[in-house]
């Protein structure tokens, strides 16, 4: 791997993708809206629905499971417990950000290369296809990770501002760290790879994004099952999920690298 070539690709990808205003807004504003919306919804639920929410059997089940994982919250008032339960979902909600950004980069990067037919001259330079692929993957993954971690930081500031005292300490758990620093990178890579593979098969970025965004469904399902108390993930479960996604990354990477051969790009990509 020649770092110089990979950096050359990353710089070009960023310049090209970010010179598109729509993409730029999607990458910068949408994550802020996602996290802002999450904080706002929680704030409104706590402010206006308050403890009444906890009367629902669904929330009661969720709360019991949360107390089993976090015994330290047993002594907190019900309204604080509700805040812990809801704010604890934010780090899972954050997973939407890397999915969205990495898929956007992958689809724009690859489909625009196909549409402008710039891949063939690129393949006639001394760059190897693995360097090209890694360059593109990093170009898509780095902004996804940076924006997600930035939003994770903002979400903590939001929790500190909106939540009652001591809530922050109950939200920033080992699960939070595993989710933000293991699961987010694994999901980012998976999103890019799936976006790249799908983009090699279709010619319209919107189609590719529509198909790729199916990856959001498991993330939404994860949030839903936690909020309604079907399942509350322990740090170990978060770790196992991160490892599973990492293994899936490796499998999908092999498929991606195979698709990203000179010959496949020229002959099979349509």
């Amino acid at each position: 791997m020649r770092r110089r070539y990979i950096i050359n690709i990353i710089k070009k990808e960023w310049e090209d993708t970010l010179s598109n205003l729509n993409t730029l807004l999607l990458i910068t504003l949408a994550p802020l809206l996602i996290i802002g919306q999450g904080l706002l919804v929680i704030y409104l639920v706590v402010r206006f629905a308050g403890e009444g929410v906890l009367m629902s059997p669904m929330f009661q089940t969720a709360m019991e499971k949360l107390e089993a994982i976090l015994p330290s919250i047993a002594e907190l008032p019900p309204i604080d417990k509700l805040q812990v339960l809801l704010f604890s979902q934010l780090h899972v909600y954050l997973l939407l950000i890397p999915v969205m950004i990495a898929i956007t980069f992958a689809t724009f990067s690859i489909i625009e290369e196909k549409q402008s037919r710039s891949l063939e001259p690129l393949l006639a330079t001394p760059v190897r296809t693995d360097e090209l692929f890694i360059g593109k993957a990093l170009a898509g993954s780095i902004p996804a990770l940076v924006m997600t971690w930035l939003c994770a930081g903002l979400s903590l500031i939001g929790i500190a501002c909106l939540g009652t005292a001591h809530i922050l300490g109950a939200v920033v758990t080992p699960s939070w760290f595993i989710s933000v620093f293991l699961l987010v990178p694994a999901v980012t890579v998976l999103s890019f790879l799936l976006g790249a593979i799908i983009s090699s098969r279709v010619n319209d970025p919107r189609n590719a994004q529509n198909i790729s965004l199916l990856i959001i469904l498991p993330v939404l399902a994860l949030i839903a099952v936690q909020v309604i108390g079907v399942l509350l993930l322990t740090p170990l479960l978060f770790f196992i999920i991160a490892v599973i996604v990492g293994v899936v990354d490796l499998i999908v990477l092999r498929i991606g690298v195979r698709l990203f051969q000179r010959e496949s790009i020229i002959i099979q990509w349509r």
Binding site: R4, Y5, N8, K11, K12, E15, D16, S19, N20, E112, S116, R117, S118, L119, E120, P121, L122, A124, T125, P126, V127
Partner: peptide, 22 residues
């Protein structure tokens, strides 16, 4: 190549610089 194939949102100079970078 048969089709010129460039990055249309980048300048002529930047396109050449990118390819020269290899």
């Amino acid at each position: 190549t048969e089709a010129p194939g460039f990055y249309n949102r980048l300048s002529a100079r930047r396109n050449l610089e990118f390819f020269a970078g290899f």
